[in-house]
Simulated scan of single mutants.
Amino acid sequence: MRLTGIVLAAGKSSRLGRDKLSIVMPDGKCLAAWTLEAALNSDLEQIICVVKPEDSLAWIPSVHLNVASYSITPITPDTRTRLRIAICTDYAYGMAMSLQCGILSAMAYRTEGVMVILADQPLLQAQDINRVAEALAANKRCDYAAATDGEGGKPPVAFREHMLGPLLSLSGDEGARRIMLNSKYAGTHVSLSDYCFWDADTEPELERILDYVNGLS
């Protein structure tokens, strides 16, 4: 199944009070680069990274940034690359705007579906992304497949192409969860390890991530 990943990296980091994307991890890479590379190492066909206009993109490793294309560039055989940067000018109006920006960019690929991934969950692995994608492919009658920690569906979540319309109808800070809570849509859940869902919204949450990574070395 040809899926396009949408990595949402245009958040305001308001709860943390500083740019979470560029926080340096123990290996010297930035926090959001871990998530982006998990997506790039997965079986997703293309990756669209949604960013703010003022983002310097310094958090993206040069090996990926140097070969990326941009949403302002038409997709042609010469410019089509696996990583595409989509600049969301309306990110301040809520997550739905970032999601819409990514979906509109993904539609240019004539994709069979999209997978929504949050940039601030650095412990997510490529195999976790693949498991969610495989669940959607295997369950033909499902509109979506979502990861879960036992408390409902959560990102990463993959949607079939016919779900792009409902996703585009979201507004404000509404995320994909509203779609998953709608009983008219059928979904399947994939259980992932708790740490896959750890984000860096606050300093204690960031410390938990860093402590976990340091404990692996």
Score class of each variant (00 low, 15 high):
Val50Leu: 01
Lys29Ala: 10
Ser62Met: 13
Ala92Asp: 03
Leu44Ala: 02
Gln100Asn: 13
His64Pro: 03
Arg82Met: 06
Glu45Ala: 12
Leu65Cys: 01
Val67Glu: 15
Ala68Lys: 01
Cys30Leu: 05
Lys20Asn: 13
Ala32Trp: 15
Val50Met: 02
Glu54Ser: 13
Asp90Cys: 12
Asn41Ile: 05
Tyr93Lys: 15
Met25Glu: 01
Tyr70Arg: 09
Leu36Thr: 07
Thr76Ser: 02
Cys101Phe: 01
Ile47Val: 15
Leu65Phe: 07
Val50Ile: 07
Ile47Leu: 02
Asp78Trp: 09
Leu83Glu: 00
Asn66Thr: 11
Leu99His: 00
Ser71Trp: 03
Val51Asn: 07
Leu65Trp: 01
Val63Glu: 09
Ile72Met: 06
Leu21Ser: 10
Tyr93Met: 08
Ser98Pro: 06
Thr35Ile: 02
Trp59Lys: 14
Pro61Asp: 01
Pro74Gly: 05
Leu36Arg: 00
Tyr70Glu: 10
Leu44Phe: 05
Asn41Gln: 04
Gln46Pro: 08
Pro61Glu: 02
Val67Cys: 08
Asp43Val: 05
Cys30Trp: 03
Ile103Asn: 06
Thr81Val: 12
Val50Glu: 10
Ser98Val: 10
Ala39Leu: 04
Ser62Glu: 15
Ile72Lys: 14
Ile87Asp: 04
Ser71Gln: 08
Lys29His: 09
Arg82Asp: 05
Gln100Met: 11
Ser71Asp: 15
Tyr70Met: 07
Met95Gly: 02
Ile87Leu: 06
Asn41Asp: 11
Asp43Leu: 09
Pro77Ala: 11
Met25Ile: 05
Gly102Asp: 03
Asp19Tyr: 12
Thr81Pro: 06
Glu45Met: 08
Arg18Ala: 06
Ala96Pro: 07
Gly94Cys: 11
Ala33Asp: 02
Ile23Met: 10
Leu16Asn: 13
Ala58Asp: 15
Ala96Ile: 07
Ile60Asn: 06
Gly94Trp: 04
Val24Thr: 15
Cys30Met: 12
Asn41Trp: 05
Met25Tyr: 11
Cys49Trp: 08
Asn66Met: 10
His64Asp: 00
Pro74Asp: 10
Ala96Val: 07
Ala86Met: 08
Ile75Trp: 03
Glu54Ile: 05
Trp59Glu: 09
Ile72Glu: 11
Pro74Ser: 04
Leu83Asn: 00
Arg84Val: 11
Cys49Leu: 15
Ala39Gln: 04
Met95Lys: 15
Ile23Ala: 10
Gln46Arg: 12
Ser42His: 00
Ala58Thr: 13
Cys30Pro: 12
Leu99Asn: 04
Pro53Ile: 05
Cys49Thr: 09
Ala86Ile: 04
Leu21Glu: 06
Ile72Asp: 09
Ile60Cys: 03
Val24Ile: 15
Ile23Gly: 08
Asp90Tyr: 14
Pro74Arg: 01
Ala68Tyr: 07
Asp90Gly: 06
Thr79Tyr: 07
Ser62Pro: 02
Leu104His: 10
Ser71Cys: 04
Ser98Trp: 03
Pro53Leu: 03
Glu37Ala: 04
Leu21Gln: 13
